[in-house]
Amino acid sequence: MNNKYLKYGFLFFFLSLCQAYVFGRINFMGAVNPQVFILFILLVPVYSKSGLMLLGFLLGFSVDLLMGSGGMHAASGVCIAFARSFGLRLVSEKSRFDSATCPIGALSKSERFLYFALLSALQSLVIYLLDSWHLYPVARAGLYALISAGMTWLLLVVIYPFVRDPVRS
């Protein structure tokens, strides 16, 4: 149990630092960055929607604080925390998850890929719509969101095997 807290606590800080100092500074095409920090929200074994949303807000806000980006990451973190259970139900019939482990331990590979794709698309859309406000047209925000979601999805697929819950896998 303690190990679990330690692991996800470490993941929280590690992902927010990586997002702020590595992935958030790629600026592909001037503004496109992968949003790898959402991996924490997708994996953390917290099943209370309110608790998950608060964690999503805290994680996003930590990234915002380090990057000086206002509340964009916090807004998108809350959004995918709210949508996580819908995403899980959408990709899989297995609606009962073991509350002690990672919510996606029971998913097949293709279900997991789809789950990553759906939530990274939603998160990127929120980030770039907020970012586009008065800066560039909505169509360009859509394009940026699409590219960012693709980059995020690819990185999530690559990183997941290194952080997945050993209990279930």
């Binding site: 929607k49 309110s50 949303m53 807000f57 509340g71 916090a74 807004a75 809350v78």
Partner: peptide, 15 residues
Amino acid sequence: LFLSLETAAFYLSFQ
């Protein structure tokens, strides 16, 4: 709660 947190995040974005 979702609405409150989003409102807080939007407020931070614009302030």
